[in-house]
Design a binder for these strands. Structure first.
Length: 106
DNA sequence: AGACTGACGGTCT
DNA sequence: GAGACCGCCAGTC
């Protein structure tokens, strides 16, 4: 199986209204320390047809990762998150303490 | 079989 | 807090 499918499987578990960081997804996918790989995998997701909630994955600083290579998908990402009720501050950051996904907490 | 390409994150200045 | 540095690896041609 493709390694990326494992990453997508984790991403699909992120609930609506929550976000996860690249590093967090990497850990859950048994790829601890390989956050970049998660970024590479998500870049390959087809934004219009995929069932993966790719927009709920952001960087460890609590920001959407912007890049001209994304052809506007980054702005779409922010828009989708706002539609889920997530608020950005004046610096374009999300409060991770409020929105970070916490799988199986005790 | 290389070479190239990318949404990162922790640590140290 | 902001940069710089560095390790990371699968997919495509």
């Amino acid at each position: 199986m493709h390694t990326y499918e494992q990453i997508y499987a984790i991403a699909r578990q992120i609930p609506l209204g929550k976000v996860a960081t690249y590093g967090q997804v990497a850990e859950l996918a048994n790829l601890a320390g390989k956050a970049r790989l998660v970024g590479y995998a998500l870049f390959r997701v087809d934004v219009s047809t995929s069932d993966v909630p790719w927009h709920r994955v952001i960087n460890a600083k609590g920001e959407v990762s912007y890049s001209p290579l994304r052809r506007g998908a980054d702005y779409l990402q922010r828009s989708l998150l706002e539609q889920e009720g997530i608020k950005f501050n004046e610096k374009g950051k999300i409060n991770l303490r409020e929105y970070l996904w916490q799988p199986q907490p005790y």
